[in-house]
């Protein structure tokens, strides 16, 4: 088996667990929608700020959901010692990293699709420039999923995963929030040309951290 086949095997495993347990759809997704609703409570829909800051609200919500998705991705490895099974399976650690990151990416993209509908409906935003919006979302999500998987593995075995992952992950992905928000703002405001530099930044981040994860995951997985 080559790297891609092995990675898709791992991703398939995670996605199958997700399809059967439906944690993302039944818990993380409603959580995201509630957060969008609460933003309207906090910022008062009558003042008209919601539409202006909608990209920022969307990406904050997506990041919070990503924290939960990453935590979930490693919770399923802790149960019943699944982690040892994964480690002993003989799969390339790089493939395990890519597979788990890919599964998180796919789950988050599904979440973001529904959340963006929520933004359109609740905040009255028109998402017209589809190409820059989708590209920014995909690259940002890959970046967050890669760093999240890396940090998730870093603290997977410790009892403080739920509290430590947010503290470690959020500062690191702050450029992603910045890039994705500015990119979306530019695209929604009808100046896609201003979105492209940010999309470039998101691409650099995604490639960089995917490479680091691919290289470093072997040593991390050895940890008991």
């Amino acid at each position: 088996m080559n790297l891609v086949q092995e990675a898709s095997l791992v991703a398939e495993k995670d996605l199958r667990i997700e399809l059967r347990s439906r944690v993302t759809v039944q818990q993380i997704l409603p959580f995201g929608l509630v957060v969008l609703l609460l933003f309207a409570f906090a910022l008062d829909p009558d003042r008209g700020v919601l539409r202006d800051v909608a990209p920022g609200l969307f990406w904050i919500t997506a990041l919070l959901a990503a924290l939960l998705a990453v935590s979930r991705s490693f919770a399923i490895e802790v149960e019943h010692g699944a982690r040892d099974g994964l480690r002993l399976s003989g799969l390339d650690p790089a493939a395990i990293f890519l597979g788990k990151a890919a599964a998180v990416t796919i789950e988050l993209l599904v979440l973001e699709t529904v959340l963006s509908v929520g933004v359109v409906v609740l905040f009255d935003v028109a998402l017209n420039a589809v190409l820059p919006l989708v590209l920014a979302a995909v690259l940002a999500t890959v970046g967050v999923a890669a760093t999240g998987t890396l940090y998730g593995a870093l603290v997977a075995s410790s009892g403080t995963r739920e509290t430590l992952v947010p503290l470690l992950l959020l500062p690191v992905v702050s450029p992603v929030l910045l890039g994705a928000t500015r990119g979306w703002e530019a695209a929604i405001d009808g100046v896609p040309s201003e979105a492209w530099p940010w999309i470039g930044l998101l691409a650099v981040f995604a490639v960089l951290y995917t490479s680091i994860g691919t290289l470093a995951f072997g040593t991390l997985l050895e940890d008991a």
Partner: peptide, 28 residues
């Protein structure tokens, strides 16, 4: 954690943070 495990974990985390600094600076 075990001393070796902790050292490896922290070394990788330190390098992830270090690589992030120029990206943060540049984007901000």
């Amino acid at each position: 954690a075990d001393a070796d495990v902790r050292a490896r974990r922290c070394a990788i985390a330190a390098l992830i943070a270090f690589i992030d600094v120029p990206i943060v600076h540049f984007s901000v």
